[in-house]
Write a protein that binds this DNA or RNA. Sequence first.
DNA 1: GCCAACCCATACGTTTTCGGTATGCCAATG
DNA 2: CATTGGCATACCGAAAACGTATGGGTTGGC
Lengths: 295, 295
Amino acid sequence: MDLRRLRYFVAVAEARSIGKAAERLRMAQPPLSVQIRKLEAEIGAPLFLRGTRGMDLTEAGQALLARASEALALAADGAEAARAVASGRRGRLSVGYMFVLANAMLPRLIPELRRAIPGVDLGFAELSASTREARLLDRSVTVALCMPAINHPEIQVARIGAQPFMLVMPKSSPLARLSSVPMARLQGRPLIALPHPDHGPASSAVVALLRRHQVVMPIASRVETVHSAMSLVLAGEGFAILPACAQLGAPRGIVFRPLREATDSIDIAVCWRRDSQSPLIKTFLKCAEKAVARL
Amino acid sequence: MDLRRLRYFVAVAEARSIGKAAERLRMAQPPLSVQIRKLEAEIGAPLFLRGTRGMDLTEAGQALLARASEALALAADGAEAARAVASGRRGRLSVGYMFVLANAMLPRLIPELRRAIPGVDLGFAELSASTREARLLDRSVTVALCMPAINHPEIQVARIGAQPFMLVMPKSSPLARLSSVPMARLQGRPLIALPHPDHGPASSAVVALLRRHQVVMPIASRVETVHSAMSLVLAGEGFAILPACAQLGAPRGIVFRPLREATDSIDIAVCWRRDSQSPLIKTFLKCAEKAVARL
DNA sequence: GCCAACCCATACGTTTTCGGTATGCCAATG
DNA sequence: CATTGGCATACCGAAAACGTATGGGTTGGC
């Protein structure tokens, strides 16, 4: 069963004549006649009634016609779908992001993506750093928004922006009156720490920052998420040092202040599998850069 | 876009290897490799990722696979459907019948047909004689049950039975006491006549019957349908002469009696277009003969 | 660290199939 | 009775597909 035969068959059925169909197919009449007879031999039954004024479908021919047109359309659609996926016009883009970036980036990023790749089925998942890495490696997410970037030989990284660290405290704190806080003023104050690079964006970078300025902050609590860090800050348990973009998700009663001498910042990066063939990645990168530019 | 290529593509996608797929397809590995590359060239994008352990679908390949398998199934199904229709295992059989045969035949005929050709979509339409002929000619019914047969050069006829004429009268009529009625006793009695061969089974045959026995019955009413003839009989307007099978549709209060000397009968026939190619006709004929045999 | 095994790609000759041209057959038409 | 329109058949050249032989790259074992 050859798709060409079916195409010929449909053409003849529509034209109700071999000659007319041959003209539309840009071929001579005899080979088309042969192909139709071969199809009939393959089916084992006549598909047309040869009248003196052309060809009419038999009932068997009508039964075949319905399926044949559908099969043709499906094959054409399949080819087009494959081309669309390959070119990035369609497909699926699954994005892993982190909590602290959600409020700052997604409201700008999502409309940007929908405009750039309207046919693409978008998926978003808030994932911890270690989960983002695992899901990138097993290909269940296509790209990840990370802060800082994932460091892994299989994973490629593009830096799209950076966030300065800020001191996070309750509104009632005396330091909240300052428009920016000198590093020295942190000395001895309790720190709400995110304990492990896998569970927060700031931890090791914050340790490095404090050490460089020779400031010691006793660790008051270790928490798993930025969200609970802010809750503890609000409860007066201590201070946190977080990327500036975390402000957007902060509850009322919490203030962010720049650290005066700290020029440190933490990179925002897009990460993806080095061997990923998805053409959507570069589009995503452009959209993410735009979304970050207006942060 | 060739169906063979799609078949090869699906085989390779399922086997995740060109070599394995070639084995399943009973062909050598190199030509299959060539066909896959030709398909990729036709699509304009790679469909597989060539790894060292075989082939993996790209996303474009996955998009194609879904449609390709469906298209293959549809083409195969189309061929099978055409064969089924040609052989009479499936298809549509539309039957035109007449009112007087409905009660006598359909209860036996329909179950017979459903058993013989379970995959066939049956249609029944009660049609007047002229309509039956027209619908046969324009092919909107496949076969017709007629009494008597249609006479037309394009229409073929098979006699499947016959019905004797009977006298139809109210229960209260004096003639109802006889178990059979001599023709002579009809002399001068009012006749409810079906006026035209197109609108009833009996009219011209009844006229011939009466003339042969030299009986004159004045025409009391002319009616269009057997049903209304029986209504008038019940109302005492006169007598009717109808085929025996009309008994089954008769209201209470009406009796049928044989006509003693009348050996006349009217044929029950199956009629169909001479050029109809439907293999269902001979099956229908067998079923109709069975249904008539037990009348 | 080299060799064997595995798997896909390429090359080339053979065979099948397809399409074009020429022509025949049949029926309807005037 | 000849002409026209439409499909079928015959034959030939061209294209495509298949098989065999072979190359190249990677993995895994000795």
